[in-house]
Design a binder for these strands. Structure first.
Lengths: 225, 225
DNA sequence: ACCTGAACACCGTTCAAGT
DNA sequence: ACCTGAACACCGTTCAAGT
């Protein structure tokens, strides 16, 4: 438990160090946001930091740990913004505000979505953010089990929604020109006509979110309306 | 429109060809299912097919097209299974059966989830599957717009759920031993106690699905119960 | 028409070495 | 303690060439 027994670099105040875990992770997130997931390589990271690519391995054991750091940084944003949320009196509205914030934070980092949606959350800021979200669900009157179920399904819906809304195609854009659905009116008439219907993604998220939250409350709240 | 004007190999009956688009995509899906997303490379694919890795490029322009093919193959499974679904009289149950089938098909290919969840669906089997799903929502009494909203949010929830349930961590497993949340009871008490609550993923999916479907019906069905 | 193989510009990671 | 650089075993893709 002594400081000397911990892995990694000394955490003293020496100003000689040019690198640090935080600097590396910030640079990684910047590459991800500006150039996409496939551009985030250890070699590119070294170049951006002005350092030999292998220097990063002094601070992080491998690329998986880098991804964990990036996810933690994004969920730190979520935790901070949730802390600034002014509470709303109405229950559904209070829950909805939390999930809208979640969506906005995810939308800010669309290239990170395949990472966020598959890596388990155990990092400090992730836990802090989920402490806030789960508490909000319990304040709504749900018991612990109901709150866990409601929060988990709300988060799963939000991640699925933002993936559909904002993610880049994994493996790159399809090359061929995607001739849409010309001449398919006879074979897939319902989808063909549905194509004409324009539904904004804000409206889509609101519809799903409110339906889900009200359905969950009806199911897991004892008797209250 | 003549056969000769189409790109790619001749589709005659010559038995000389050892390769075909379908054979390639089946092999790619087999690699994906058995060894994971990072193992699916053009070179590995060539090795499995017993052919020079570059031969694949005669049938597919690049790896993005290969991914499109894999997604189409998976949604072909969905289309086939939806066609075998015996219709249920009760509305919510009929919709739920469709989404449960969607979940089961996705769970069969967990390594494909980052691909399925980010690549847009325009392929033939994808459109056929969505024709069935959307029709089921319209048969429930929703108008076209309501059906599009309900189907889209239900699909988004299902994908988000299966990602959380079955996806492999993008970038590989975290190396450090994840010391869980020891000694964190004071800092994140709600999450700490929630950890004790065991909720099976079947139950989680059912809870979210039924809440969502009932909420959507209440909102988009005119007056019926 | 269908398949090959060399070549190019990349990857993540290990390890011995430098200061 | 912190950083370097060579080396290894990989990538996707282009292109000229073979049959």
């Amino acid at each position: 438990m002594s400081p000397a027994s911990r892995r990694g670099p000394q955490s003293d105040v020496s100003p000689r160090r040019s690198l640090s875990r935080d600097v590396i992770i910030s640079a990684a997130l910047a590459i991800l946001d500006s150039d996409g997931l496939s551009s985030l390589s250890m070699r590119r990271l070294g170049a951006v930091l002005g350092v030999d690519p292998m220097s990063v391995y002094y601070y992080l054991p491998n690329k998986a740990a880098l991804f964990d750091g990036v996810v933690d940084a994004i969920l730190a944003e979520l935790d901070r913004e949730l802390s600034q949320l002014e509470p709303h009196a109405e229950t559904t509205e209070r829950l909805a505000a939390v999930m809208r914030t979640y969506r906005q934070v995810l939308k800010r980092h669309p290239h990170a979505l395949p990472v966020i949606s598959t890596r388990p959350v155990r990092s400090p800021h992730a836990l802090a953010a989920f402490e806030r979200i789960l508490s909000t669900f319990m304040d709504a009157g749900l018991d612990l089990r109901g709150a866990v179920i409601a929060m988990t399904t709300a988060v799963e819906f939000t991640i699925g929604h933002v993936l559909a809304e904002a993610a880049e195609p994994y493996g790159g854009e399809t090359p061929y020109s995607a001739e849409a659905l010309e001449g398919l009116e006879s074979v897939i008439p319902v989808v063909f006509h549905a194509w004409q219907v324009e539904v904004g993604s804000d409206e889509l998220f609101e519809a799903g979110l409110i339906a889900l939250l009200e359905g969950l409350q009806r199911r897991y709240l004892p008797a209250t309306g």
